[in-house]
Computed example of a mutant assay.
Amino acid sequence: MDIDANLPLPADTDLDGLIENQQLDHIAALIHTHDVIGATRRGLAETEGRPDDEPYDSASGLTLTVGEMRATFQRELDRLAPVTALHVLRATEAGANQLSGARHRAITAARADGQSWSAIGAALGMSKQGAQDWFNKRSIPLFQDHAAE
């Protein structure tokens, strides 16, 4: 499935498969879809309790009624994948783990190339000690995972 991280996911998207795939552009699309759903729900909530024939004030200059905007918001929600906050949490956890592993490998490579902990810390926006602490905290679980194999 071709996914554009800048477009919301369609309603028929296999969200569990998308999360398991762990591709960062898929995770970005999932987050974007969740954001669009939130904005659309807020727009729909603004129409609650208002008469259908009342003019809807739109920043874009649209001249629609509240009823027309309510229907537009509902159509938008119906066409989107039903992404929940829990989907976003699962996906971002998978992405964070993937990025953390890539960071660990890059630090290992930088050290092998002779880079100082000060240079590594600066590249990460932290102190030399912060970089060493981050690396060491993640090295122990990685070592334990490989030792069990």
Rank of each mutant, 00 (worst) to 15 (best):
A96L: 11
T33V: 13
L24D: 14
A148P: 01
A123V: 01
D35I: 05
G101N: 13
D16A: 10
N21H: 11
R105M: 10
G114V: 12
R41P: 08
T47N: 02
L142Q: 14
I31T: 08
A122T: 11
D133H: 10
A71S: 13
G125Q: 06
I27K: 04
L18Y: 03
L18F: 02
P8K: 01
A147N: 08
G114R: 07
R103Q: 11
N6I: 00
A85K: 08
R41M: 11
L80Y: 00
D52T: 02
A59T: 12
L142G: 10
D35L: 11
D4A: 09
H104Q: 11
W117S: 06
A91N: 08
H87E: 10
D2A: 09
A59D: 15
D133W: 03
N21P: 00
D12Q: 13
A45S: 14
T13I: 04
S116V: 12
S139G: 12
I27V: 14
R138A: 10
R138S: 05
A29N: 12
P51I: 01
S139H: 09
L64C: 12
I19G: 07
F73Q: 13
N136L: 11
R42W: 10
T92F: 03
Q129W: 06
I107G: 08
L142P: 00
A102S: 11
R42V: 06
A122F: 02
A109E: 12
P55H: 05
R41L: 14
Q23F: 10
A94N: 06
K128A: 15
R90G: 01
D35Y: 00
D12H: 13
D4N: 15
N97E: 15
I140D: 05
G61W: 09
A59N: 10
A122G: 07
L15H: 01
D14W: 01
S58D: 15
Q129T: 13
A148T: 15
P141K: 15
I107R: 01
H26L: 03
I3C: 01
A5H: 07
L15T: 05
H32N: 12
R75H: 13
E20Q: 11
A28E: 11
P82M: 01
T92Q: 15
R50N: 02
E149L: 14
S58A: 15
I19A: 07
G95H: 07
I120S: 06
